[in-house]
Amino acid sequence: MLKKKKTEVCALGRHISLSADKARRIIDQIRGRSYQETLMILELMPYKGCYPIFKLVYSAAANASSNMGSDEANLVISKAEVNEGTAAKKFKPRARGRSYAIKKATCHITIVVKDISSDESKDISFYSLKNPRWKKKTTMVYHDVYNSIVR
Rank of each mutant, 00 (worst) to 15 (best):
K3T: 12
K4W: 11
T7Q: 04
E8T: 01
A11T: 06
L12C: 01
R14H: 03
H15E: 14
H15D: 15
I16V: 11
I16Q: 05
I16M: 09
S17W: 09
L18G: 00
L18R: 00
S19D: 03
S19E: 02
A20R: 11
A20P: 02
D21F: 12
D21L: 09
K22V: 06
K22E: 05
R24H: 00
R24T: 07
R24L: 06
I26P: 01
D28Q: 15
Q29M: 11
Q29K: 04
Q36V: 09
Q36R: 11
Q36S: 15
E37L: 07
E37R: 10
T38N: 11
I41P: 00
L42W: 05
L42H: 02
L42C: 08
L44K: 01
Y47A: 05
K48D: 03
K48A: 01
K48H: 01
C50W: 04
Y51V: 00
Y51E: 00
Y51P: 00
K55M: 06
K55H: 03
L56G: 03
Y58P: 00
A61P: 00
A61Q: 04
A62T: 05
N63H: 15
N63T: 07
M68H: 10
M68N: 05
M68V: 08
G69W: 04
S70V: 15
S70F: 13
D71R: 13
D71I: 15
D71H: 12
D71G: 12
E72F: 08
E72R: 10
E72N: 14
A73P: 07
A73W: 02
L75I: 07
I77C: 00
S78W: 02
S78F: 09
K79Y: 05
V82N: 06
N83S: 06
N83M: 07
N83A: 10
E84S: 14
E84F: 04
G85A: 07
A87P: 12
K89S: 09
K89Q: 06
F91Y: 14
F91N: 10
K92T: 08
R94I: 08
A95N: 05
R96I: 01
R96L: 13
G97W: 04
K104E: 15
K104D: 15
A105R: 13
C107G: 05
H108W: 07
H108M: 01
H108T: 08
I109N: 06
I109Y: 03
I111N: 01
V112T: 15
K114E: 14
K114N: 09
I116K: 09
S117N: 09
S118M: 13
D119K: 06
E120R: 03
S121W: 10
D123V: 13
D123H: 12
D123N: 15
D123G: 01
I124M: 14
S125F: 14
F126I: 13
Y127T: 06
Y127K: 04
Y127C: 08
S128H: 02
L129F: 11
K130H: 04
K130C: 02
N131Q: 12
W134R: 10
W134K: 08
K137W: 04
T138A: 10
T139L: 07
T139Y: 12
T139D: 09
T139I: 09
M140V: 15
V141T: 11
Y142L: 12
H143C: 07
D144Q: 09
D144V: 07
V145Y: 13
N147S: 15
S148F: 02
V150S: 13
V150T: 04
V150M: 08
R151L: 12
